[in-house]
Design a protein around this nucleic acid. Structure first.
Length: 493
RNA sequence: GCCGGGAUAGCUCAGUGGUAGAGCACCUGAUUGUGGAUCAGGAGGCGGGGGUUCGAUACCCCCUCCCGGUACCA
């Protein structure tokens, strides 16, 4: 290896090879169609933002996870802050910046946009669990709306996106929703007014489905030590309060409305949070969002600090990758950039986790390994330009075609092995025999493979070499390839 | 971040204080214009640095990376 650079991928980062990119493209296309069907328009922003844009926007945890970059030629100096940038850790903060920067000139409110792109977090990666330092988020947000009708739109949108991926509500995916105002109101009723304590409580509650009941209790009380010996700071609540709190967040009825009714009974009469959630649920109902797909869960919290009301989180059932999407209302975020407050709500789907989860579940949407349907082979002892002409003719007819240009030009077996490995549907051959007769040979690779699958003997297998292929007049090239690629259509015509 | 376990061929792994193997994958071939299986052959490796030793892939230390857990989160 002297002098050679070792090819390696950075820890927490990934290379996406063609097969994975093709599947990803299919998933993204399906979600895009859903987003656009709700009237969202595309937007893109740079991966880098100024540090002030990012710092403090997502809470302390988010700050610690920011990658800082600088120009190599401009070392950091005392007054050199301007040469340092931050890599975005989500797409929501850039969205808030965009609103503050372009409203009301170029952007009119309410504004609904979708945005797909990589985000970066410098935390401890665990690829097997779908946790990376670079990952792709696919967000949809609405700015300039404080009505919970928008919150419901966003949740319905997320649900529709998972439906478009052929996932089943309840058994395939579940979206849990909550409103921070409910827990806030409950804590206030218990006499806890300190915002920091409330945040801490929410963060602990968020783990309720991941840690044991005893551990949860300990974290709400005196704190505990985890298996590594780390001390986990407790909230310091009295045991009696913990009991009541745990009872509150455990409320779960068979419908969202019943769950809310029970929660309302534990809160002061006329609590505004309850009224807000009630209206939100009514909109969900009106949007036709099923009880199986979206559940009200008073224990749901979410980690990012900027959420102010409705929050939600989506999971793939049994996929073992954690949450694959989440979001909520963040009415204060634009205020960081502008005196003109703009309320906003949105959802973010984690594409990498979603794909990891789909892969664990064995779902692939029949995605292919190649973008071309046909491959044109270059036959021995003939003018290679003949193959080139055929490829051009197929492309002109709208058939995605690869011209074989590898080292095995003239070696039919090698080229067919390549065609097989790549997964092309059709191979086109025009050698000396065809050229002399004015014909072309088209091989249906799938049919040929199937018809020879049972042959064990080598010479017999070779004798059946022409399986699935037929030779037609050169003028019928396009029509024949088309009929192999689309058998139903040609049958009908 | 913290705790623990690992790192031998492209992948999954075996192995020994005297410089290494298997299966799968890959490449070549089996009357030259036909995919797979089979058969024959081939290529390819002890993560990086330091130490102990006559000698280290093996024993010790550091680094890097990976895995599991925990924390946090998408």
């Amino acid at each position: 290896m002297t002098g050679l650079v070792r090819p390696q991928t950075l820890r927490g980062f990934r290379d996406l090879l063609p097969e994975e990119m093709l599947l990803r493209g299919e998933v993204v296309a399906r979600i895009t169609r859903v987003y656009e069907s709700f009237g969202f328009v595309p937007l893109d922003t740079p991966v880098l933002e100024t540090l002030p844009t990012l710092l403090g926007s997502g809470g302390e945890e988010a700050d610690k996870q920011i990658f800082v970059v600088r120009e190599a030629a401009k070392p950091v100096t005392a007054e050199g802050e301007a040469t340092e940038f931050g890599m975005r850790f989500d797409l929501t903060v850039p969205f808030a910046r965009i609103i503050a920067q372009y409203h009301p000139q170029q952007i009119k409110l309410p504004f609904r946009r979708y945005h797909i792109g990589p985000v970066f977090r410098a935390d401890d990666p665990q690829p097997e669990q779908g946790r990376f330092r670079q990952f792709t988020q696919f967000d949809a947000d609405i700015a300039g709306t404080s009505t919970v009708a928008a919150d419901a739109e966003i949740v319905a949108l997320a649900s529709a996106a998972f439906e478009a991926l052929e996932l089943t509500a309840g058994s395939g995916y579940v979206i849990r929703v909550n409103n921070r105002k409910l827990v806030d109101a409950f804590l206030t009723g218990l006499g806890i007014e300190d915002g920091e304590v409330t945040k801490h409580v929410l963060r602990v509650l968020d783990k309720s489905d991941k840690i044991t009941a005893e551990a949860l209790r300990a974290e709400l009380g005196e704190g505990r030590f985890d298996v590594s010996g780390d001390r986990i700071r407790g909230v310091g609540l009295a045991p009696e309060l913990i009991d009541r709190l745990l009872a509150f967040v455990a409320v779960q009825q068979d419908t969202r409305a019943k769950t809310l009714d029970e929660l309302a009974g534990l809160l002061p009469e006329g609590d505004p949070g309850v009224a807000e959630v009630r209206e939100f649920l009514a909109h969900l109902e009106a949007l036709g969002v099923s009880e199986a797909s979206v559940k009200l869960d008073p224990g749901l919290a979410r980690g990012l600090a900027y959420y102010t009301g409705t929050v939600y989180e989506a999971t793939l059932v049994g996929a073992g990758v954690g949450s694959i999407g989440g979001g909520g209302r963040y009415d204060g975020l634009v205020s960081r950039f502008s005196d003109d407050p703009v309320a906003a709500v949105g959802v973010s789907i984690g594409i990498d986790r979603l794909l990891a989860g789909l892969s664990n579940l064995g779902i692939s949407y029949g995605a292919r390994r190649t973008t071309a349907d046909a491959v044109v082979l270059v036959m021995p002892k003939v003018d290679p330009a003949e193959a080139t002409r055929i490829a051009a003719e197929l492309r002109a007819a709208g058939i995605a075609t690869e011209l074989y240009v590898g080292e095995s030009v003239g070696k039919v077996g090698k080229q067919l092995a390549y065609a097989n490995a790549q997964g092309f549907a059709v191979a086109v051959m025009a050698g000396g025999k065809e050229i002399e007769a004015g014909t072309v040979t088209i091989k249906d690779l799938q049919a040929g493979s199937e018809s020879r699958a049972q042959i064990a003997d080598n010479s017999e297998y070779r004798a059946a070499k022409s399986a699935g292929q037929f030779t037609v007049p050169r003028a019928e090239l396009v029509a024949t390839v088309t009929s192999v690629l689309n058998p139903q259509e040609s049958d009908a015509s």
